Deep mutational scan, measured.
Amino acid sequence: SKNWSEDDLQLLIKAVNLFPAGTNSRWEVIANYMNIHSSSGVKRTAKDVIGKA
C-alpha cells in the first residue's frame, strides 16, 4: 500500500469530518477531496481511503 504522510492522515481526518456518514458516494468524495488538497501528489482511491479510515 502507498505510504501515508502525517499531512495526508490529518487531511483524511478533516475530510471524514467534512463528509459525514450518509454523504452520497462518501468514500469517493473523500478520495477526490484528498487528491485535490494533498501536498504528497499521491492519488488515492476510495479503497485506499476506506483501508486507512
Rank of each mutant, 00 (worst) to 15 (best):
Y33S: 01
K14D: 12
I50P: 03
Q10H: 07
S25L: 07
D48Y: 00
G22K: 09
I30F: 03
E28F: 05
W27N: 04
K43R: 12
P20N: 06
W4A: 03
S38Q: 09
G22T: 12
K14S: 08
E6L: 05
L11Y: 04
V29N: 09
D48A: 07
E6T: 09
L12I: 05
G41R: 12
I30V: 13
N32C: 04
A53W: 02
Q10T: 06
K14T: 11
N24W: 07
A53H: 07
M34G: 00
D8H: 04
K52P: 11
W27T: 05
F19A: 04
G51T: 12
L12Q: 01
Q10G: 10
K14I: 06
S1F: 10
N3F: 13
Y33V: 01
N3G: 05
V49S: 01
K43I: 09
D48M: 05
I30P: 00
W27F: 08
N32F: 04
K47C: 08
S38T: 10
N24T: 13
D7G: 13
P20H: 07
W27P: 07
N3V: 07
A15C: 07
N3T: 10
K14M: 08
A46P: 11
L18S: 07
L11N: 05
S1E: 07
D8F: 03
V29Q: 15
V29D: 15
L9K: 12
V29T: 14
N24Q: 10
N35H: 04
I50R: 15
S39Y: 06
L12Y: 09
A46N: 04
L9D: 15
S40A: 14
K52C: 13
I13V: 13
I36H: 10
M34D: 01
G51M: 10
G41F: 15
I13F: 14
W4H: 01
S1A: 05
A15M: 01
S38A: 08
I30E: 00
G22P: 08
L11K: 02
S25G: 11
I30D: 02
K2C: 07
K2P: 06
E28R: 10
I13K: 14
G51Q: 12
V16W: 07
K2F: 06
Y33A: 02
G51L: 09
F19N: 02
A15H: 02
E28K: 07
S38V: 02
W27C: 07
Q10L: 10
I50G: 10
A46Y: 06
E6H: 03
D7Y: 05
V49Y: 03
I36K: 15
I30G: 01
I36P: 00
I50V: 14
F19E: 00
L11V: 05
Q10C: 04
V29E: 10
L9G: 09
V49H: 01
K47R: 12
W27A: 10
D48I: 00
I50E: 15
K2Y: 10
N17P: 01
N17T: 13
V16L: 12
S40K: 06
